[in-house]
């Protein structure tokens, strides 16, 4: 019956919303749990401080448009967007369990079981197949961008850096810009040689699979520059820890298929969706029972993690030199506004 009811109209005035606690933070944006007063519905609102965005607002416009125009059950959609003095408000569905990164940090520090991973990744892959068929590259696939709601539904979020391949030129041109978070970044993206395409997301997807299996991404304890070099020089990472023996052969297969350095040899998202690994996928209810059970409210978890982080940085103040300090902090948080100076690398 929901199908027949008219589309809900979310108001375009900030006075119609009450902001509650913080549930997420980025470089120039904060995400709040909030109430849409006239509809009596809990939502998440991303508040972007436009004054902190130095350049023109094209990037932001694209992010918002992508969120409005894409329509898939596994993608986080925006209900609406409007400005309130100097900030931009993007109203979205509230994903009560938060991101997989947050869930792991607070309750599953060593990663999830295989059925949960298959269920989560299946959702992500369906979202990627949809994005790719519409000409978008996500460019920032990672556990921190996989959100789960209280009913166990999985949605891929954050199009802050997603690019449209169709925006300039008509066919599937490669992009030549450098965005993403280094641990999850495909070698061809780092090299910036030939531009890259959809296949960069498949690499990040493979890294995300490892992240969900281990509780952290490979190389995540190294500084960004080192990650860049290791990704380019070392053999691709895989499920080769001692305790990875618990995982099935098909899981190892899918990870290995994604983490091939030559992008041409990686499968498409559409093809991967049909991989036998996803026979391990379970229902939303399964996610609720196995990984969401007993989690405390998102706002509390977010506050705790923020505190932990602050303590960590206070302790390690002298470890990180002044120059690298800020970017190092952002890096560890998994924030993706990276500007590398590649000349330094060569």
């Amino acid at each position: 019956m929901e199908f027949l009811s008219p589309k809900k109209k979310f108001p375009l005035n900030h006075r119609d919303y009450t902001l509650y606690e913080e549930v997420g933070q980025g470089v120039s944006a904060t995400v709040y749990r909030a109430l849409c007063i006239p509809l009596d519905e809990t939502v998440a609102i991303k508040v972007i401080d436009l004054e902190k965005c130095n350049n023109d607002m094209d990037m932001i416009r694209r992010e918002v448009q992508t969120m409005i125009l894409l329509d898939h059950p596994n993608l986080l959609k925006a209900h609406c967007s409007f400005t309130a003095t100097r900030s931009l408000w993007i109203v979205m569905p509230y994903m009560a369990a938060g991101s997989c990164l947050h869930i792991m940090k607070s309750a599953h520090p060593d990663g999830f079981d295989e059925h949960s991973i298959a269920t989560l990744l299946h959702g992500v892959l369906k979202a990627l197949a949809y994005l790719h068929s519409h000409g978008h590259i996500h460019r920032d696939v990672k556990a921190g961008n996989i959100l789960v709601n209280s009913k166990g539904a999985v949605k891929l979020a954050d199009f802050g850096v997603s690019a449209s391949l169709f925006d300039s030129g008509n066919r599937l041109h490669s992009r030549k810009t450098f965005v993403g978070t280094p641990c999850w970044m495909a070698p061809e993206v780092m090299q910036q040689l030939h531009g890259y395409d959809f296949k960069a997301d498949i690499w990040s997807f493979g890294i995300t699979a490892l992240e969900l299996a281990h509780g952290h991404a490979p190389f995540s304890k190294y500084p960004p520059m080192k990650v860049l070099l290791m990704t380019l020089q070392n053999a691709p990472p895989g499920l080769d820890y001692e305790r990875d023996k618990r995982f099935s052969k098909s899981f190892k297969e899918i990870v290995a298929a994604c983490l091939v350095k030559d992008p041409k040899k990686r499968p498409t998202a559409e093809k991967l969706v049909k991989h036998r690994f996803f026979k391990h996928a379970r229902s939303k209810e399964f996610i609720v029972r196995t990984i969401l059970d007993g989690l405390c409210p998102l706002g509390d978890r977010f506050r705790m993690l923020k505190k932990k982080e602050a303590a960590f940085f206070a302790q390690n103040e002298d470890v990180y030199g002044d120059k690298e300090h800020l970017s190092q902090q952002e890096y560890i948080r998994g924030i993706s506004a990276w500007n590398f100076n590649l000349e330094d690398l060569k």
Partner: peptide
């Protein structure tokens, strides 16, 4: 008032 529409029109 819709930022997505207004910013598209601006572009």
């Amino acid at each position: 008032p819709n930022f997505d529409v207004a910013s598209d029109a601006f572009s």
